[in-house]
């Protein structure tokens, strides 16, 4: 990788510039007629001002907090359940090659399945409440964590393993001091992806059928061609994702201090 050679303030300034340009283009396109036509007609694209006003209005009420809370709850539950299951099965499969060999084709099949097709089934089974969304998120998170933990256990350096054995470790101690930290590091390296997928599962689930959450908010607005509402929902979702991602980065840097690539990061 090539080293980043700009200072932090300059980088942020550039990032802000991109946003300003995009919003500026959007604003001009939707509010300033060029030879009598709007490039971005209001009906299809709304305007940045309207969207901003809608967001302010949403946040001055109390309902938005309930929606955010629901989506957050679903995301966290999907992440936790999917991760725990992924860790348990990842370890089990890595340490029992026969189990891994037997289930290999089924895992590949299950993982290749587009999860959206499962959403209606989960709703049938679990109802329209949060659990059908959690289940959808779990099916996404599980496989990411599972494959990473499996890899982490398999890829322990043979020299480190032999050394640990020579230092007198029994199976239980090997698990605790060698396999577990290695698997965990692989799992955390995919933390951004798995948290992201937990959120995707929640929002898509809400979108396809529910009475609360950010996905529901967007779906509801779409149902009445309220483009301003759709964009407002998307902006809130994007901000929410950034926030969750920042928290994940914090956690990651705490837990992976020992890794060469994590150390240089700030």
């Amino acid at each position: 990788m090539t080293e980043l050679s700009v200072s932090r303030p300059k980088l942020i300034a550039l990032q802000v510039l991109v946003a300003v340009l995009l919003i500026g283009f959007w604003h001009v396109g939707s509010s300033v007629p060029i030879f009598g036509v709007y490039i971005l007609p209001k009906f299809f694209f709304s305007t940045p001002g309207d969207v901003a006003m809608r967001i302010v209005k949403l946040f001055s009420g109390t309902m938005i907090w309930k929606h955010l809370w629901i989506t957050l709850t679903e995301t966290v539950l999907a992440f936790v359940i999917g991760s725990v299951a992924g860790v348990v099965f990842g370890f089990w499969f890595a340490r029992r090659p026969l189990v891994a060999a037997v289930f290999d084709p089924y895992l590949k099949m299950a993982n290749a399945l587009p999860r959206v097709v499962l959403a209606p089934i989960f709703m049938l089974w679990l109802g329209l409440g949060i659990w059908s969304k959690v289940a959808l998120g779990v099916t996404l998170v599980f496989f990411i964590v599972f494959f990473n933990v499996y890899q982490g256990v398999k890829e322990v350096s043979p020299a480190v393993l032999a050394n640990a054995r020579m230092l007198g470790m029994n199976e239980r101690q090997l698990f605790r001091h060698v396999y577990w930290p290695s698997a965990l590091s692989w799992m955390f390296s995919s933390l951004h992806t798995s948290v992201g997928f937990a959120l995707v599962g929640a929002v898509v689930g809400e979108y396809l059928g529910s009475a609360a959450g950010l996905g529901y908010l967007i779906h509801e607005a779409e149902g009445v061609f309220d483009v301003t509402g759709v964009f407002a929902g998307m902006v809130i979702l994007a901000a929410f994702v950034l926030l969750v991602d920042a928290v994940v980065t914090k956690v990651e840097n705490r837990l992976l201090v020992w890794r060469p690539d994590a150390a240089g990061r700030t």
Binding site: A159, V160, N163, M166, V178, P181
Partner: peptide, 13 residues
Amino acid sequence: GYLFQQDSLMPWK
């Protein structure tokens, strides 16, 4: 006690 040819310290410790 065995001092290995390859790096064999536990990188997470």
